[in-house]
Structure formats: C-alpha cells, structure tokens
Design a protein around this nucleic acid. Sequence first.
RNA 1: GCCGGUGUAGCAUAGAGGUAAUGCGACUGACUUGUAAUCAGUAGACCGGGGGUUCGAUUCCCUCCACCGGCUCCA
Length: 593
Amino acid sequence: MSEDFQSDQDFALGPDDFPSPEEYQLHCLRHSTSHIMAAAVQQIFPDARFGIGPPIKNGFYYDMQLPRPLTPEDLTEIELRMREIVKEGREFQQQTWNKDKALEFFGSHSQNFKLELINGIPGETVSTYSIGDFTDLCAGPHVRRTSQCKHFKLTSIAGAYWRGSERNPMLQRIYGTVWPTKDELEEHLHNLEEARKRDHRRVGRELELFMTHEWSPGAPFWLPKGTTLYHTLQEKLRRLLSRNGYLEVKAPLLGSHNLFRTSGHWDHYKENMFIVEDEDGADFGLKPMNCPMHMLIFGSKRRSYRELPLRLAEQSPLHRNERAGALAGLTRVRQFQQDDAHIFITEDQIGEEVTRLVGLLKRIYTAFGMPYRYVLSTRNEEKFMGDIPLWERAERLLAEGLEANGLEYTIAKGDAAFYGPKIDQMVQDSLKREHQLGTIQLDFQLPRQFNLSYVNAENSESIPVVIHRALYGSFERFIGILIEHYAGAFPLWLAPVQAKVLSISEKTVDYAREVYDRLIEADLRVELDARDDKIGAKIRDSQLEKVPYMLIVGAKEAEARAVAVRSREKGDEGASPLDDVIARIRQEADFNY
RNA sequence: GCCGGUGUAGCAUAGAGGUAAUGCGACUGACUUGUAAUCAGUAGACCGGGGGUUCGAUUCCCUCCACCGGCUCCA
C-alpha cells in the first residue's frame, strides 16, 4: 500500500474493507476531494451548514445548506478555490475528540447537522479531519494531502433531503468526479458524453421509435418503428415461453376495489394507483400489477397438483401513478407492460423452477451479449409474513437453484419483500452500467389472501406457492436499455428496418421496386429509397438510420439480377445474385432465443 | 410531491422591452447520379399555457404544465 494513503491508523474503514487496493485508494481520493469542495464552499459561504459528503461511484457529493440557491457560475468559482487548496498541498490531519468537545466545536459553528450526526455515533469519541482551517466530522480515511486530488470536476447541482427523508429540510447537493490521473478523468468525461449521445430519449426520437407528449406524461407513444421493435421482443419471448410450459392469458385492466382490497393493494399501494369510478360511484382501479388477477384465474376452478407448475404469463398494460418528479423517458413511466408471469407450484418444486428460470434468463441475455450477476434477497427481520422455517427453506432452495447452475451470487440480507425472498438479476450493458432486469420472487402470502388451494396427491388441500417473475422486466424499460446498449444499431433480427433498397438513378427504380417486392415476399422488414438523389446521400441517410443492410441497385445489378450489398458494419461488400442475398439475410434474420 | 434548471419552426441552436434568425429536415424544380451530404427556390413559429407590469412583452414578474438533473451510494 502506498504511503500516500492513510492506512496506518485505526479508521472505521481500512484497506481490508475494499475488494482491491485500487478501490480503497479511489475511496480515499473521492472522500478527500469532497472535503476540499466543502472547504472551498465555506470560503464563499461562511454560514454554510454541512450535511454529509461521501465518496460514490465515479466521484463524490456533499450536501449543504446555503443562504441562496447555487448557480452554474458558483460551481466554476468553487472549482477555482478547490484548485488553490489542492495547490497548497494542505495536510489531512486527523484528531480524535471526545464527544463533548466535538459538540461544542460544531455547535459554536452552527453545524446543526453535524451535531445530529455526532449524537447518532456510538461510543465516547468521534474522529475529525482538518485541512487548514476547515475541520469536518469524519471517520476517514483520506489521502495525505490535498495535492493528491488534482483531477476533478464538479458535475452538477441537485436538491437532496437531509437524510433522504421528505420530512427533513432540503439541502443543496454538489456532485463531482475525481480520478487518480488526468487521462482517467478525461476518459470518464468522454464516457459521459458518449452516454449522452446514446441516451434512449435522443436516439428514440432520431430513429423515430417513440415519442412523448405533454398531454400524456409518463406514457410513451410507440411510433411504427418502435412498435415493430416492441412486437418483435414480445413475439420472440412468446415463442420461448410457449416452448417452456407457459400459458398466456389476458386479464382485465380494470378491477373492482374488492379485488385490490383482497390483494392488499388498496391498503398499501393505493396512492400509486389510478382510481376510476363507475356511474354509481363504485371504485375501480387500473391494475398496477397482474398478480391479483392471476390469483382469480387460479381460483376459478378446482385445481389439482397434477396441473402444477401452472405458469400464467401476461403482457398487458399496467398503470402506476408515479410521482410527477420521478418520470423519465422509458425508464420511469406510468403506463407499461411487463413480461409478467405467475407460476403456481408446490413447495417442493421451487428449486427446479428456479433452475428453469435462470435457464431462460441465460438464453435471453446471451442473445444480447449482456453479462449479468445475481443477488439473493433474504428475509427482513422486521417486516415479513409467514413462518421462519418456510422462509429459510425457500431461501435455501433459491440459493441451491443458483448453485446447481454454477451461478455465483451475492446475498442482500434483509432486502426481501415482506411476502417472500427473491433473486434479482443485475445486467451489464455495453457502457458497463448495471440494470436490474430479471427478477424471481417467491410469494407465500398472496395465495393465502385469495384462499387458493389445490388438491394434493393425498386428496387433501394444499396452498400453492407463487413465483412472480419477469425476464425483461418491462418492455418499456428494456427497450430503453437496449437502445442505449446498441446505440440504436440493433441486430438484424430486432432491427425495425432490416434492409433498405437504394436505387442509383431514376433509370433503375423499376428494378429497385422489384427487389423491394421480393424482400417483402421473403417476410423481411424493408424500405425503398427511390428519391432523385445521389447514392452517397442515400447511403448516408441509411447509415444514420442504422439500417443493417443497404442493397444498392444500378444498371449493372439490374442487368445481372443482382444487388450490391453494403452492410452497416462492414461497408461495401460487392454485388451478389439477388436470390443469394435474400437467402443470406433471411437466414441471418431467423433468430430465436 | 420537494429542490434547482430548461421550454424559440419537425430537430439543433441564435436573439433581443418594439411580434424573430441560422443550419439540418420538409416541400417544389433542375440534375440522373456508383458507396457517408448536388444545386436553386418555397413554405413553416400565436417564442409551453394563463395572468400581471408596460404605450408596447416572446424578452421583466407571478402562476400552471411539461421536460432535464437530483431527493442516504448514509460521519
């Protein structure tokens, strides 16, 4: 360990708490830069009251209460002063104070948030760090001196509630990023710019996949090309599911309050539901989830253990009244469709069903070239229903289901919902960002609330276990992630337009039209560009539209009944007979999970 | 919901207390084109909605709406 890092003291966090020395050093660097920022802010606003300023992924933030809202110009000013502090090379000096001294010190500086923190810290003493005249309550660790924090940039200003609670005052938060070297900082800023360029909202508009309108906030309008994408994902999934024992259903969108009272949504989820009244004033709700409806389907007749596992899949629209400030693009919407399913099983079938599910996830996500990992969420000691032995058995079965497939996973202790443990699938996209997509949730409660049972082999009644599961998550969010993963350049089987026929001149339009018709007959998604324009311009437009294949036809091709193929990735591939090209594209487009 | 920001033609941007400009796109015409932008012309904006200040507001103020960045990754 380098002596640039304060690993030699008795800190709350030491090098051993991190997976690697690099991460430990980054932690120190980011935490330290956060202090430098606070010191700079204090120079400008002597009355600033500080909250917390932790290191985070890629950087740091600091929450503070200031006499006025910050502007972007303030960030520039703060950065300037930070650079001075960095240049001065002030030393990070640690001191251990007893609490009385700390309370007196921070009290005399009106740092009431710090007082609250001190009172929440166990033990008799607290740790502080000073750089020059700026002293902060902090467990550390830090770098040795401020001169080590050269390569930073302040990135944004945001509002944040003190301790994340809406009942607390709103503080101002400044986010920043910092790296050990200039190159790494520049690379990070470059990555941010790249991410901005492939933002699904931007690409979705440019490629005419979807639109939004202020008269339907939180509900995307799927344009023709986006609808093709949506349907393709639905159909590929349907095929996979029907081959794996799923039965698709379509339950109503609207349900009586009686349904949602029974499911518990009326008591626990009503503020997120859209409620409508019929002419007599009876309350109905738009379903926020499919599960209550599927319970009714299961309960609609006497069920036998021979029917289990009963796998009911549904892709219907769901509505959730998300808070206005939480809406964003396709990732946080009010109307969406999950690739939902509820699997009714006996307790004995849990392990095998998990195996089947991770098998399905594997097929799907290898198709997209996205690596992933699993997280098992276990019982929360404070909020859970049902008996503990059943929970423990179920958690073990989930774990075994993963292990039996040679899958590594981490455990999120206490993160389960009250009704049962779950496995979440964390998927990495091409920009190495993680998204929670697939989920496998056990539920011991809902079948009981709906009084569900089946006749077991001993001819008595048993209560089924339910698995709620999604593979894509929601189509909306999944498409948003795919757009960014591929930057709009979808694989052939998924591309809204698979090929575009480009005519070189007016003289070859008839043949171009013929080529177009042949591709249509071959069930390919194809467009014809017969404008009176130069071939270069048509190629450029197709390339910007990210069409996988351009089929260029001029006099030579018409003569030979051929097309010149230009692929999105490889460029000009020369001419081939039309029949061969159709066969080739057809074969490549023929894809299933 | 809360904090901050933004809202000008389909898109990207400019502008200023006296009703708006540029590029791309669209449309029309000419060119008939061989692998990432042919040329010329035309049309297109109640400057997000409502209210106020003012002789006059798109510009300043208030309010509503939408969008964007956030709202524990816990000293």
